[in-house]
Amino acid sequence: MLSRAADCLYWMSRYIERAENNARILEVNQQLMLDFEQSEATVRQHWAPIINSLEEHELFHKFYAEADGESVVEFVTFEQKNPNSIFSCLSRARENARSVREQISSEMWEHLNELYLFIRSKGARELFHASSYQFFKHILQGSFQFIGITDATMTHGEGWQFIQLGKFLERADRTSRILDVKYHILLPSGERVGGNVDTVQWMAVLRSCSALEAYTKLYVGQIAPWKVAEFLIMNDSFPRALRHCIHRLDFALHSISGVSEDRFSNEAERLGGKLRGELDYTRIGEVFQAGLHQYLDRFQKRLSEINDATQEIYCEIPPPEQRQSQSQSQSQGGGSQAQGQSQSVGSAKR
């Protein structure tokens, strides 16, 4: 497979996963805010950490003075200048898909294209204002359907493995950030750890990972911080838990190279395998001892190293700068001259 095609499939998959996770975080937190008295301080304490966890603090404050519900939701949903808004993610996913139309099935393309046409439409705004819950649900289901269509209509070959790789790497990254949000959210004064508000916040963390039901089954209802963290980090069969994601990521890497899972043939496999081993043999007590925030921070850095190694091994191609303006002005006998928009394809290194 062309290196550029592998790169496009990988990023297409990451961007869709990112859009889905953004939608869920916003939806859950909007719901959560309904449970609290809306003093200005609580609102700020609640929404600012979400922006921080997405590492968009600086960009956000270029546009908005205050992190309240409305501004954060707007910024993460529709803001075109935010390269990681749902709008931008879907545009970039679709742009990557367009470059590899011949690699993916028509069903995948048409579904993603419809999702893209939706987010650009007036109907999207209208639905958002009528019921943001319905709106976010539409995005979530769009992503779920895309994953299902991909599994059901695309050959599970090399290209498909790059899609899996992108999906699980992005998902692990997002779950770790959601968990980290709780670290940033301060308990209102007078509230104690393990108290009512604390529990509600931990439940929101689980719901942000679609994990509340699965967690409740396993731990029979007790919401305790270390148990939530244990579940979201160590569980090997819940699809959004870090350990599960890393297992799948490791498997995808080995499927691409064809090397058996008990050895490594390149740097990405070495880093992935090492992380997998550590997650397999770590206890949650050790994580808390090192500090949850520090642990998650380090985890995200290691994902980023795996990303870089993968790009270097499989996708190294010269940067696309400059190319765009010429590709637009190429004449096509009897066709037309073009000058279009500027959005770079692919490699956003985050």
Binding site: S327, Q332, A338
Partner: peptide, 9 residues
């Protein structure tokens, strides 16, 4: 191809 920005892409 010249790429996805070309009108005939």
């Amino acid at each position: 191809t010249p790429g996805i920005y070309n009108s005939a892409y």
